[in-house]
Design a protein around this nucleic acid. Structure first.
Lengths: 157, 157
DNA sequence: GTCGCTGCAAAGTCTTTGCAGAGAG
DNA sequence: CTCTCTGCAAAGACTTTGCAGCGAC
């Protein structure tokens, strides 16, 4: 794949995302602040699934003079989750982790030894899920699937 | 199906479960107490997915003179979860819910309006999950899948 | 200028822990 | 008898909230 194209795609995607966010804010008479942008941007930049705390730490590192409070992280994550711009994932005692929902839909394979999360999608499963919801009379809004196990790395240790 | 057989099946199942629990305790030099039995038995009896708090309330109602403390509920649930006798399910801000793992494996369809949980199993999905784990080099230990939506009841309101 | 937003610290909630007496093995 | 359990209350961890000043619009 051509690198320039790839870069452009990524840029366009973030611009798009940021724009969606601004529209969302305006629609609800909310304000676009530097803290909110930084949170969205950091979620976008990071490939990790972040806890409120790790997101906070990351933002403090990247923008030390902004001095963002943890309360703002919580408030913004709630806002983003309510608006379906981010989704959260919680498992075990490791707490709640957040990721941008704007990325393509995918499921998660979680290593219970090291905590690593691998993403995947399977069309067959997606199709069955829709069918099952229909059969049970549910109006399906969303779904999540996690497979737990030991990753290749940890198996070798 | 014959009712007597059904009753026997259920009885045997619980006896079996209780026995597994006793073996587990003995193996770890832990003691079999009335509180632990009551917790296991209440989990078995209840068809619901219980939070520590609702389990506690239920036990207080069923055995008022036992005066079981919430700390014991937490301690026993952790013990049971570590030993894979119960599994937990967490979603949204509604906290963590527990269910006996001894029941047959199944996935969950969750109504985000009323919180109702419906169980289901789909062989095709089960099979694909194993295949995917294998392809990604994971040694699969467990998995969970949730479909979120609106149940028939809530759609009609 | 107005009104929502932010950081701070205090307050909540949920869960875990220390302890002294009770109870299982 | 010994050593684990239990209930209680205190401590912790995580999250939310009230407030006064700040900043977007």
């Amino acid at each position: 794949m051509d690198i320039t194209t790839d870069f452009n795609d990524r840029t366009v995607q973030y611009t798009q995302l940021l724009n969606d966010f601004k529209v969302l804010l305006k629609k609800n008479s909310l304000k676009f602040t530097i803290q909110r942008e930084v949170i969205l941007e950091t979620l976008y930049t990071s490939d990790e699934h972040l806890t409120p705390e790790s997101l906070h730490r990351l933002i403090q590192e990247r923008f030390p003079n902004l001095n963002t409070g943890i309360a703002t992280i919580y408030r913004t994550l709630s806002l983003l989750e309510e608006s379906d711009m981010v989704t959260s994932l919680s498992f075990g005692s490791q707490g709640k982790k957040y990721e941008l929902g704007a990325k393509n839909h995918h499921d998660h394979m979680i290593c219970t030894t090291c905590g690593e999360i691998t993403e995947f999608v399977d069309e067959q499963i997606e199709a069955r899920q829709h069918k099952i919801a229909q059969e049970l009379g549910f109006k399906m809004a969303d779904h999540s699937m996690q497979i737990y196990g030991t990753c290749q790395n940890c198996q070798n240790k």
